[in-house]
Design a binder for these strands. Structure first.
Length: 696
DNA sequence: CTCTCCCT
């Protein structure tokens, strides 16, 4: 936002007035603007309201302002709006602050992990749904909020689903409290050590809930909230022509390749966005496009391929956002990151092969897998919508129209496809004891819940009668980590190697630290050699982290400014084939977790060069994930008896030690274990006698 | 001989 001093020149003042005028016009032209009065009225009348609004309706930016103007922030109460993604929370908050002609962090602010722009004056607060869940641990009644808006609820992330269940409960607690009229003078002051259950009966204004969804099916939300009223707001999208194939396509990669060139040769100008399932498909299609493009005469118009997937370093992702040079058509090859997380400008043509790589979870074995499956109808609509953001577009679906009807309506909610240990631990910490009876919008399987309860008992977070243990369970619930990593920190304090373990769990908590594309595989491998430890991946990660810290230290000693230091780190990462974004993230996690560890009074000491001690500590923390080598060179996971292989990304891939502990067991092309350290099998019975006996 | 996507 441009800022102007009191003595701004008349010309600047005029510019500013024009800018304000433009913002007012834009706001007034949004589809939602015409129903402001009605919306505020509905919120006043109904405790829970479902708003179905298509993209471009303006609901995310406008509704909170309507509610603010409608008096929902009296008595210093806050309107909270949750988003599934960090970028959304930040960009929307910035936009709304601009529309309010106010500095970000005053009336309008955002709060996401590692980045909080709110102040006491903040009344409209955008945040991630995961962060609001964390806030509930400290303030179970969410007492500072008068309204909570859950945006993008149709995406049905785990966080959204758990939040909906929690909000429903909070709403009841606050309503009942008012009826009973029991009063505590200072709710916030008292609630810190209370659980949701204990908060019942404490006076607090009723909580207004608004669920916003882009899916046409509002019924499931309405049913869940006791036949809550649903209203529909029109969106603003350009028309998109949908084309299907006449025949089934057996090879969607080949079909995508053919379609790209068909568009390139026969259609007017405009960029192409093709949805593929993963890095490997994207890399190989990029090669195929270049090969085929070489067959065209040099004077024909060119193709510029830009890949986009999550683990691609940001600088390379940015290519997709740059305009193509004159006479060139940009072809963006993306994973489902381009469905929701990033909006690429200039797209007129979308190619949708109708497949996606998705996570699946088998609660019986506890095994996660990545499988390629057909997309849902909702995903197909979302993808084609990407062609109509800036003008009319075309979407080429690489399947027959009859196949569309066979697709499932919407993607299976994530809560039914993942390990629930963290969810269960959070709910327990909120005082919700009966997890199986908890009113989820969609219940995870009983087996999945039992499996996570069992795991939490083995980790010592729950007692044998399923109560949160004291202090370990409480400590674990407050740490923003996978429960097994939280346990590892607590254990390491006793082993006197918390310093090393802080690094390990930070590095394990982020996306892959190492980055390589197929063409530079050998270079990347050579770079990693310098960090490798023959003990395994954990100590290798510690080496990477310490080397990066050394690089920062060096530029700090040269009196470099913050920005220069980051630049040096970025360069160091490029030279060493380290993903800068992941490392940056790991450093943020590290400093946050270190703070928690200190608050918990954990003993911050280092094991120095005693790697045996550290490996014993890793064994003690990750004993549930141990595997023994079999005569045929494969491994057997001891907890489940599954046959697994060492993932090729591990430094132990060639070494094949007798016995390892690992952090991840994933099925892709095979059953793989990732992030390993070699251990002595005798340590298992010694350090985890509750789980292993010494018979063997 | 390999890693959809988010989040505390």
């Amino acid at each position: 936002m441009p800022s102007f001093s009191a003595g701004a020149s008349p010309q600047k003042q005029q510019q500013f007035a024009r800018w304000r005028q433009l913002i007012r016009q834009q706001r007034k032209s949004l589809p939602i603007a015409s129903v402001e009065k009605r919306l505020v009225e509905e919120v006043r009348k109904n405790d829970t309201l479902i708003i179905v609004g298509e993209t471009g309706s303006g609901k995310t930016t406008q509704l909170p302002q309507f509610l603010y103007d409608g008096g929902f922030c009296q008595d210093g109460k806050v309107i909270g709006i949750t988003q599934p993604r960090r970028v959304a929370a930040v960009t929307v908050a910035k936009r709304v602050a601009e529309e309010c002609n106010d500095q970000l962090g005053k009336k309008v602010g955002y709060s996401i992990r590692f980045d909080d722009s709110t102040s006491n004056a903040t009344r409209i607060k955008y945040m991630t749904d995961g962060l609001l869940l964390r806030e509930a641990l400290w303030d179970p009644l969410l007492s500072k909020y008068s309204v909570i808006v859950v945006d993008e609820a149709h995406e049905r992330t785990v966080h959204t689903d758990v939040l909906l269940g929690l909000l429903k409960k909070v709403q009841h607690s606050r309503a009942n409290a008012n009826k009973n009229g029991k009063t505590l003078p200072d709710v916030q002051g008292h609630s810190q050590n209370l659980t949701l259950k204990e908060c019942q009966g404490i006076r607090c204004a009723p909580l207004k809930l608004i669920i916003m969804s882009a899916s046409l099916d509002a019924k499931c939300f309405s049913d869940y909230f006791g036949c809550a009223k649903a209203v529909h707001i029109q969106g603003r999208q350009y028309p998109v022509d949908i084309l299907y194939t006449y025949q089934p396509e057996s090879d969607y990669m080949d079909a995508t390749l053919v379609t790209i060139f068909q568009i390139h040769l026969e259609e007017g100008p405009g960029d192409i966005l093709a949805f593929l399932t993963g890095q490997e498909e994207i890399e190989s299609l990029e090669r195929l496009i270049h090969e085929r493009a070489r067959l065209f005469p040099p004077e024909s118009s060119r193709i510029w391929v830009t890949p986009v997937y999550s683990s691609l370093p940001s600088e390379q992702q940015m290519n997709a956002f740059k305009p193509a040079p004159a006479g060139t058509r940009k072809v963006v090859l993306a994973t489902n990151i381009a469905e929701t997380s990033v909006t690429i400008p200039g797209i007129k043509y979308v190619i949708d092969p109708g497949m996606v790589k998705a996570r699946a979870y088998n609660p019986v074995t506890g095994m996660e897998s990545l499988i390629i499956i057909p997309v849902s109808k909702a995903q197909v609509l979302q993808r084609s919508g990407r062609a109509g953001r800036e003008g009319p577009g075309k979407c080429f679906r690489l399947f027959q129209e009859s196949e569309f009807d066979k697709l499932v309506d919407s993607t299976v909610p994530e809560i039914k496809r993942c390990n629930l240990s963290n969810v269960v631990l959070q709910l327990k910490a909120l005082g919700i004891d009966d997890i199986i009876g908890f009113d989820f919008i969609e219940k995870p399987s009983r087996t999945a819940i039992l499996k996570s309860l069992e795991q939490l008992i083995l980790l010592g977070a729950l007692t044998d009668d399923y109560k949160l243990s004291d202090p370990v369970g409480h400590q674990m619930a407050r740490l923003p980590l996978d429960p097994m990593y939280s346990k590892a920190l607590i254990v390491s304090s006793k082993f006197k190697c918390l310093e090393e373990m802080l690094i390990v769990v930070s590095m394990l908590s982020v996306e892959s630290i190492f980055f390589s594309v197929r063409e530079k595989l050998e270079e990347a491998r050579a770079a990693r050699k310098g960090f490798e430890s023959s003990e395994g991946d954990h100590i290798t990660l510690v080496n990477v982290y310490r080397a990066s810290a050394e690089c920062l230290e060096k530029s700090r000693n040269a009196n470099a400014k913050e920005k220069t230091m980051e630049k040096a780190l970025n360069r160091w990462c490029r030279e060493n084939f380290i993903n800068y974004r992941s490392l940056r993230h790991a450093r943020d996690v590290h400093s946050q977790i270190q703070g928690h560890a200190q608050q918990m009074g954990l003993n911050l000491s280092s094991c120095g060069d005693d790697m045996v001690l550290f490996r014993r500590c890793l064994t003690s923390a990750f004993f549930l994930n141990a595997a023994m080598r079999q005569p045929d060179g494969s491994y057997r996971a001891l907890a489940t008896g599954q046959s697994v292989q060492i993932h090729p990304s591990s430094v132990l891939f060639r070494t094949k030690p007798d016995c390892v502990i690992f952090n991840e067991l994933v099925r892709t092309t095979q059953n793989y274990v990732k992030n390993l350290t070699r251990i002595d099998p005798l340590w298992l019975a010694e350090l985890a006698p509750q789980y292993y006996t010494t018979e063997e």
